[in-house]
Amino acid sequence: MTTETETNWLDEEVGIVTAQLRDLKAEMVRLQARARNGDMAAAKEAQKTVAEVRTFLARAAETEARLAEINGRHGGARGYALDLDGARVAIRCRLDRLRRCHGAG
């Protein structure tokens, strides 16, 4: 059985990761729209967003490891299932499209 501290930590982390992913997705959509409209300043902002994506992925990996640890000890963590591989693929695809918009190769 998970402890209250573990449950609170997990609930908080899942909420944070979900919010970050939602924010990063919205930012990438905004940057893509700006790039399509010829706003080259969007490229600099894209660099910042890429750094945020890296931070997100590190935090998601930490959460995933902690969840695996809890699952290993307790045989399940209240049905939480983060599709981190899917999130990574989606983020990489968006970054690739953004790079193509700016001709970065």
Rank of each mutant, 00 (worst) to 15 (best):
A42H: 00
A43M: 08
H74C: 15
A104C: 07
F56M: 01
E12P: 00
V17I: 15
L67G: 00
G76H: 05
A104M: 11
A35G: 04
M40Q: 05
C93N: 11
L21S: 03
Q32T: 09
T5C: 03
D85M: 09
M28S: 11
A19K: 13
E69G: 14
V53I: 15
E69L: 08
I70V: 10
R78E: 04
G105S: 13
G105F: 03
D85K: 02
Q20A: 14
E27H: 03
R97I: 10
L10Q: 09
A51T: 04
N37C: 04
A61P: 01
H102F: 13
R36Y: 14
L82Q: 06
G72S: 03
T5D: 04
I70D: 04
C101P: 00
I70R: 06
R30W: 08
A60F: 03
E27T: 10
K48E: 13
D11F: 05
A19I: 12
D96T: 11
G79Q: 05
W9T: 11
R94I: 13
A26P: 13
D23S: 05
Q32G: 09
G15Y: 10
T3W: 02
A60W: 04
I16V: 15
A42N: 00
L24C: 09
V50R: 09
G75D: 03
L57A: 08
L10I: 14
R94V: 15
T49P: 04
V89W: 06
R30C: 07
I91D: 03
A42D: 03
G103K: 07
R73I: 02
L24I: 12
R66Y: 01
K25G: 15
R99K: 10
K44N: 09
Q32S: 09
R59K: 08
M28E: 06
L95D: 01
A104V: 11
A51F: 07
C101G: 03
K44R: 14
A41L: 04
R100P: 08
Q32F: 02
E45N: 10
I70C: 00
N37E: 13
R30L: 13
G105Y: 03
R88L: 05
A51H: 14
D96R: 12
R66D: 02
E62V: 01
